[in-house]
Amino acid sequence: MRFFKALFFIAIAASVMTYGELGWQFKDFFVFYFPWLPELMLLFVCVVAGWLFDKLFHFLVSMVFSAVASVVVSLTLVTITVGNPVYSHLLGYGVIKGSVALAFVYLVICSIVGSISVMSLGKNDKIT
């Protein structure tokens, strides 16, 4: 059950992170995008993490997996979407840098917010 809860959390957090990463970088193209909406959703997800995780360690590992998955999904989507090898090469470095930087920022902020939530709401057994 714990595994499925973590998997569910990773799926949601990675989706919202991907939305934020791509939204910031391609906001001129994003039809359905409101500034700070992904960040607000991510904060909500982190606060709810307290109900999903009992152990802080599990939450932090899930957070790392979410960040990595979001970068992978972002880059895959951009590569598929562009479809033109010349253009994707020109686009490539900036998107990689942007996605990694944003994923890192999300990871740090979410780890702090989520940790507080897990420590206060979860049945955390002091990292054992």
């Binding site: 989706s15 919202v16 991907t18 939305y19 791509l22 939204g23 391609f26 193209f29 994003f30 039809v31 359905f32 995008y33 909406l37 992904p38 959703m41 989507l77 951009v78 979407t81």
Partner: peptide, 9 residues
């Protein structure tokens, strides 16, 4: 998130 991503991309 996925509606935003799909429409945007």
């Amino acid at each position: 998130a996925w509606i935003g991503i799909i429409l945007g991309m």
